[in-house]
């Protein structure tokens, strides 16, 4: 468990980051993904359907883009040893800010995007400051911020509002061949996050802070600053997801984030991708795999017309089983 991980990670110096990279179990999740695709293909073919049709491939990407972008941000937060429960409400807020600022006019798109970026960065800043300066546990800090945003949303909005111009809806609906623009956006965010984590000092520090905050601090990392920046980035990702959803819906909606369950589902996707909830181990690649796995499962369920209650049971079992397998592998190596 967490304690044992901590104990394992408490050598006198920060564990070198290439070791954490080596232990990333992203391979496992892609293996599982391949398995699910194969099973889905067989099951659907048995019913006379075609699983790997263009519509399905596009559908899986469309279904996963918003969750995928949030999950990338969530990966950063979790790698740094934190987490963010406020993303779902922030997504709703972003979609509304975007749609209301655009008000159906092309000329307002830039301002709207800037407004969303500003607001989500501010929310991330608050999250980060409450966690680091007020020393509130991230669970409570981000849950509290989530409640605050919820109150504001309920107070200001009582239904979908604003209007997204046609031109902005290209983001949600267009595609280049089999690749929807939304999926390209997701890929772009993922690549940027990967670059950040692997090639920049900040990335190394995120792993260091998540691995052991005390050790990181003693070795000269300004842990507070790293955590704050991480939370700002996480919230920015939620803001981008809000923009994407506004473009899909043509308007902003005060419940789009919570209806989608983006808070807990993004955390589930991250751990499904092999990132340790305690922080310090894992990466973006696994998260992409985790999101695709959930979306592909959804697609198989859709094709088989499985009812939503059974889906929940399967999702629960898959998440717990996956994490148990990761824990076993890690433990086995250490022993």
């Amino acid at each position: 468990m967490s304690e044992s991980e901590q104990i394992g990670a408490v050598p006198a110096r920060t564990p070198p980051f290439w070791r954490t990279r080596g232990s990333s179990p992203a391979g496992v999740v892609f293996l599982a993904l391949a398995g699910v695709i194969l099973i889905g293909w067989v099951l659907v073919a048995a019913r006379g359907g075609q699983f790997l049709s263009l519509e399905n491939l596009v559908g899986v990407q469309q279904r996963s883009a918003a969750l995928g972008i949030v999950a990338i941000g969530q990966t950063l937060a979790i790698l740094a040893g934190s987490l963010d429960l406020s993303v779902a409400y922030l997504i709703s807020l972003s979609s509304l800010v975007a749609a209301e600022t655009m008000a159906g006019r092309d000329g307002n798109i830039v301002i709207a995007v800037a407004a969303v970026a500003g607001i989500s960065a501010a929310v991330g800043l608050v999250n980060g400051l409450v966690i680091t300066k007020l020393r509130v546990h991230p669970f409570i800090a981000t849950f509290g911020v989530a409640l605050i945003i919820k109150g504001v949303l309920d107070h200001l909005y009582d239904g979908p509002a604003g209007k997204v111009p046609e031109s902005f809806q290209h983001l949600g609906y267009d595609r280049l061949g089999p690749l929807p623009v939304s999926a390209i956006l997701w890929a772009a965010v993922a690549v940027a996050a990967w670059f950040l984590l692997r090639r920049t000092t900040l990335g190394h520090r995120i792993y260091a802070v998540g691995g052991d905050q005390e050790v990181a601090r003693l070795s000269g990392v300004r842990t507070d600053r790293v955590l704050i920046v991480t939370h700002v980035l996480c919230s920015l990702c939620a803001g981008i997801a809000g923009l994407l959803l506004a473009s899909r819906l043509g308007a902003g909606a005060p419940t789009v984030g919570t209806d989608g369950g983006y808070d807990l589902e993004s955390i589930a996707a991250v751990v499904l991708g092999g990132t340790a909830l305690a922080g310090g181990r894992g990466g973006v690649g696994g998260t992409v795999g985790g999101v695709l796995l959930l979306a592909t499962l959804d697609s198989v369920f859709n094709q088989m017309e499985v009812n939503s209650f059974f889906k929940d049971v399967v999702r629960g079992v898959v998440i717990v089983t996956a994490v148990a397998i990761y824990a076993r592998r890690k433990h086995g190596r250490r022993a």
Partner: peptide, 15 residues
């Protein structure tokens, strides 16, 4: 990505 979208001849699933 944005540029590519608007310059390339792209398909749209949007109504």
């Amino acid at each position: 990505a944005g540029l590519a979208t608007f310059t390339a001849s792209c398909a749209s699933d949007k109504p």
